[in-house]
């Protein structure tokens, strides 16, 4: 094993959460199909040896725990949307914020001046009155938290009630594909090289 680049890019919490949710729905879909195949085989009385993917316990553990943390009610992820974040990073580029500061603004979505003070160093000297503009930009990037949260629980309910219903999973996959098309890797906004560029540079160096 060799670490080529320790920190190739920074990820926002929202990106990690979407990735983990996708893994989770993949996993659910897979267990469902595995179950269905098993049932069909039992009914038909035949036994085929379809490849079975083993479930990685470590991955499941961190997946579930990290999703819990990232979607907890003290996190702003419930009211965030991909378009909102893209809009926010675009409008934040007008301010002289460092990459780390922008990432934390996206992650923590500060709506109170106190929260912004913690994230941005020497806020008053650097921005003064413009601080309120940043806060209103953050506010406008957040949607009503109740809508996604309610959606989330509704989806969960459906899943619990009709375990064989697969429509929901496909739907999730479709939205994920959309996400990839308009993918916002945080690193790409702002100064310099994108993720892919970094990777290429490494290859050339070898």
């Amino acid at each position: 094993m060799e670490v080529i680049n320790q920190r190739a890019a920074l990820l926002s919490n929202y990106e990690v959460l979407s990735l983990l949710r996708e893994l989770e729905s993949d996993h659910l879909a897979r267990t469902k199909t595995a179950l269905r195949i098993k049932k069909e085989e039992e009914q038909a009385g035949t036994k085929t040896h379809a490849p079975q993917e083993e479930i990685c316990e470590n991955l499941r553990t961190i997946e579930v725990e990290a999703i819990q943390y990232l979607s907890a009610d003290f996190q702003p992820t419930a009211s965030q949307s991909e378009a909102g974040i893209a809009q926010l990073t675009k409008s934040l580029s007008a301010y002289e914020l460092t990459k780390a500061e922008k990432l934390q603004i996206v992650n923590l979505a500060p709506t109170e001046p106190v929260e912004l003070y913690v994230i941005v160093e020497e806020l008053e000297d650097r921005f003064g009155e413009r601080m309120d503009d940043i806060l209103s930009l953050v506010k406008s990037s957040l949607s009503e938290p109740t809508i996604p949260a309610a959606n989330g629980t509704a989806v969960d309910d459906i899943q619990l009630q009709y375990p064989s219903e697969e429509a929901h999973v496909y739907q999730e996959e479709a939205t994920w594909e959309d996400y990839q098309v308009n993918e916002v890797v945080f690193d790409d906004t702002g100064e310099g090289a994108g993720v892919e560029g970094d990777l290429d540079a490494d290859d050339d160096g070898e």
């Binding site: 670490v3 080529i4 920190r7 190739a8 890019a9 990820l11 919490n13 992650n107 490494d202």
Partner: peptide
């Protein structure tokens, strides 16, 4: 909080997983 790290490694795929698409395995 989270970052991407680029890592190079050699992995072994067990014959029982040959039925899966290689990238999956």
């Amino acid at each position: 909080m989270f970052q991407l790290s680029i890592i190079k490694d050699t992995v072994a795929v067990h014959p029982s997983n040959f039925g899966l698409p290689p990238e999956h395995a």
